[in-house]
Amino acid sequence: MTKSTVEDAWTAQVNALGGFIRAQRQMAKLSLREMAAMTKVSNAYLSQVERGLHQPSLKVLRSIADALRLDTDQMLSRAGWSVRDEHEAHEAAPDPEDAGPAVVSVEAAIAADARLSGEQKAALLGVYRSFVERD
């Protein structure tokens, strides 16, 4: 998997989120300025989020979801995050001290997760590898 493949997947995800936010704002008949006031985020930043130039933080996504009267989980899901999935994964995760050598690698777990698309797997693997840099 090349770096450009991961970057392309990440860019596509951020663009999709921005387009979703813009469409929801327009359906709610809110101007960018009105939504900025409601979310306490600048017009310029919201515009960049809508154009896919920035991946917003969890705090910003929650304030956008509130302004648009959307379920926060729905907004987080559009961003590639899911509070429920993370909670369930944490609950189901084995205790590292009890796991011993049978612990499945992070890369294998990502590859085996049927809930993720190929693009999502590529993006996650790229981010993970950027943190652990292999020799």
Rank of each mutant, 00 (worst) to 15 (best):
E7L: 08
T11N: 10
A12W: 07
A12Y: 08
A12G: 15
N15Q: 12
N15S: 11
N15C: 14
G18L: 06
G19D: 12
R22M: 15
R22D: 10
A23Q: 14
R25K: 10
A28Q: 09
K29R: 14
K29L: 09
K29W: 10
K29P: 00
L32R: 14
R33S: 13
M35C: 04
A36D: 01
A37L: 06
K40D: 15
V41P: 01
V41W: 01
S42A: 01
S42H: 02
N43R: 08
N43A: 08
A44Y: 06
A44G: 06
Y45F: 06
L46R: 05
L46T: 04
Q48M: 12
Q48L: 07
E50R: 07
R51T: 09
R51M: 11
G52P: 11
H54C: 04
S57C: 00
S57G: 04
L58K: 03
I64R: 03
A65R: 06
D66A: 12
A67Y: 03
A67C: 05
A67W: 02
R69T: 10
D71T: 00
D73I: 06
L76I: 00
L76W: 07
G80Q: 02
S82H: 02
R84W: 07
R84Y: 07
R84S: 11
D85H: 07
E88Q: 13
E88G: 00
A89I: 00
H90G: 15
E91L: 13
A93R: 09
A93N: 09
P94G: 15
P94N: 13
D95Q: 13
D98A: 12
G100W: 09
G100D: 09
P101F: 12
S105N: 07
V106L: 14
E107R: 11
E107S: 13
A109G: 06
A109T: 10
A109H: 06
I110R: 04
A111M: 08
A111C: 02
D113R: 05
R115I: 01
R115N: 05
S117N: 01
E119R: 13
